[in-house]
Amino acid sequence: MRGEATVEAPVRAAPRSEPSARWRARDRAKWFFLLPGVVWILLFTIFPLLYAIRMSLHAYRFGIEGAFVGLGNFQRLLTDAVLHEDLVTTFQFVISSVAVEMVVGVSLALLFNREMRGRGLLRTLATLPLFATPVAIGYLGITLFYEEGGPVNAFIQTLGGSQVPWLSNPFWAKVAIILLDIWQWTPFVFLVSLAGLQGLSQDLTEASEVDGAAWWQSLVFIILPLMAPLLWLILLLRAIEAFKVFDTVVTLTAGGPGRATEVISRYTYITMRKFSDYGYAAAQGFLLLLIVAILFTLLWSRIKHNYGAPR
């Protein structure tokens, strides 16, 4: 019951056949296939990264390099209270939105993992938010969350709730941003874990047909453990994507009220564009890279340790 087979099962179309030794032998052709892509990416990443190091050591104004400032920009990372608050906001965003997306997405997948009419339609519908242009969704959000009788509040008030200050209150503005992310990305968790569940053997799926207690047991002791590697991977991908959040914040709240919804990506963007401080923005970029790299390494090594490495 090691993880690897399970991870692949959901999506494997045909039984895997390993290339024979001949394929694995030294063959210069392989570089012909691999290198263009690798070199191309390096050209666009390593070179800018190296250049970013240089930038982070200089002062900038209006896109023109100024004095050499040594590690000054990196020192500012340590003392910039605004940056620290924005990092906290970003973490709040990532943790809340990804947690809800995982729980809801996986629950829905478990619920709909059965033969039923209209499942295809549901799946099709679920792909729509994934590709909906985020900047446009942000502006749409302003009208959806309009406090004086917009549709969301109208609905809440119909149910007997009171008017929610979605975009004017620091707390609720965070919730609004998180809700938009949940709207957009829960379908991803749902679709992928549904694909995963469908790959599990039929016997297991039918476990859901047996009655209450046994169903829970099969869920907790069989299905979830089998799904675990896949779920960890989804979690990893979502967390990393969530860290990059930018578009919806720009158009829905512009980081406000105050800086309640200011996330790190937008802060770096503001530093770079509005304060014309490319050097410090580059330093912030490296900090963000460090954080994401740590997060990635922790989660990835956990996945590899527990479930074996996918090749």
């Binding site: 004017s168 209150n169 980081g255 406000g256 009220p257 105050g258 503001i270 509005k274």
Partner: peptide, 20 residues
Amino acid sequence: TFEYWQAFDVRLSEAVTGQS
């Protein structure tokens, strides 16, 4: 001025929304 006012704007918003 562009930078001064940008900073000013954010701080004012923090105050009117009760964050400081």
